[in-house]
Design a binder for these strands. Sequence first.
DNA 1: TTCATAACGTTACACTATAACATTACAAAA
DNA 2: TTTTGTAATGTTATAGTGTAACGTTATGAA
Lengths: 151, 151
Amino acid sequence: MINAEMVAALEQNKTVPSLGQTVAAQRAEHVLAVLKQSAKPLGAYELIDRLAATGNRIAPTQMYRVLGQLKDAGLILRVESQNAFIAAQHVHQPDEPLALLVCACCGRVDEAKADFLTPALTPTANALGFKPQRSSLEVIGECCACRDSPD
Amino acid sequence: MINAEMVAALEQNKTVPSLGQTVAAQRAEHVLAVLKQSAKPLGAYELIDRLAATGNRIAPTQMYRVLGQLKDAGLILRVESQNAFIAAQHVHQPDEPLALLVCACCGRVDEAKADFLTPALTPTANALGFKPQRSSLEVIGECCACRDSPD
DNA sequence: TTCATAACGTTACACTATAACATTACAAAA
DNA sequence: TTTTGTAATGTTATAGTGTAACGTTATGAA
């Protein structure tokens, strides 16, 4: 459905060429566009509402399919602690170790590489006979802007 | 509601003495007991059902209050990726960096200290002006038992 | 053309979580 | 003792999250 060509196009804020005309591709594009415009993570139903406002109402099932595709393509990230989604600042591999810095104050989320994770977890994993596949690291705190703001 | 004395008692699988006779304390005890008996994380409504089976049905709101109290006391942990809860193997501080090793196969969850997190995150946090407060690290993989099982 | 299959659509429902408000328990002030 | 404030507890209702199950359509291969 979403392929390398589309990922490349979406990443550059361009319309996906040939395949971009399929219903599914256009929807994925719309959803991604809405997420990119949002400073904060959006839930599935909030996304549905915002999409509906542009005349593109879809059912929850559809939205979750689109979100799954975008996630698999590395174009969006799921914020587990909020059951919500953000547009990725960079395209990622599914198993790439990332840290999400979540502002408890304004909700903004930043992504950062977390390459230290794999080596740091190895001893523990080995000791327990656990084979890590992917990880989710979310750091809750206060972002730059909220620290500076007078409250 | 839940105080140091109760935490100490609950930690040792004992009934909370004096205060343990309050309705709330007994409920917290029941919920914790159910979680301790489960190999896998349990959702709030699954907990409600299991508690009801022992003649102690409570409403969702109540359950979330109990879960909140137990969590604040460090007696249970929330598995963000599953919206579910486990009994803590050890009592924890709310801001203590932990890794949860979640088996994608059987659902079992192990907890491990993740002291490496704080120093590892400092450079990134500083660069972004982000002030970390607490973190949630969940590692999805295959546990010891599932690797050994024939499948 | 016919058939298989994958994509897409729809309905319905189960689970997660909390807002809002009612009631009760309890202890300090009058 | 009564009053009263407050914290705990109880209840109802509802918003939000997620998916199972199944129907329909599109597409390409036999």
